[in-house]
């Protein structure tokens, strides 16, 4: 059995002042993409670049590319399927994530 302290994130001497988090928005380092069991797949033929998927994404995991398409960032996408359900053109399909 390891000791309890072996699970500690850091030495107490390294704990930031007041246990504050000094780096804004550093949760981007935490990849929630591996929660996903379904993955949104975009059909660019049908997409009208309205951005509903992007604005309705709770993560947010959608980013606009140079051509104006909203592309899901699978690092964060948890696969909830909201984007597919709000897409007015049915351009997003949820497919099972291969393990």
């Amino acid at each position: 059995m390891p000791k309890g302290k072996d699970t500690a994130l850091m030495s107490w001497k390294e704990v930031p002042f007041g246990c504050y988090i000094l780096e804004p928005g550093n949760s981007v380092k935490f990849k929630t993409g591996d929660w996903r069991s379904f993955r949104p797949v975009l059909d660019k033929e049908k997409c009208i670049k309205c951005g509903q998927c992007y604005i309705m994404c709770p993560e947010p995991a959608y980013e606009q590319d140079e051509e104006g398409y909203y592309i899901v960032n699978l690092t964060y996408c948890k696969g909830c399927g909201i984007c597919a359900s709000v897409c007015p053109k049915g351009a997003i399909t949820m497919v099972i994530e291969e393990v």
């Binding site: 928005g25 550093n26 949760s27 935490f30 929630t32 309705m56 709770p58 993560e59």
Partner: peptide, 17 residues
């Protein structure tokens, strides 16, 4: 986006949206 991804809200959480 003042609120960053990587948060632990449940899938499809309407509150975090």
């Amino acid at each position: 986006e003042p609120f960053a991804p990587g948060h632990r809200a449940c899938q499809g959480c309407g509150e975090v949206l």
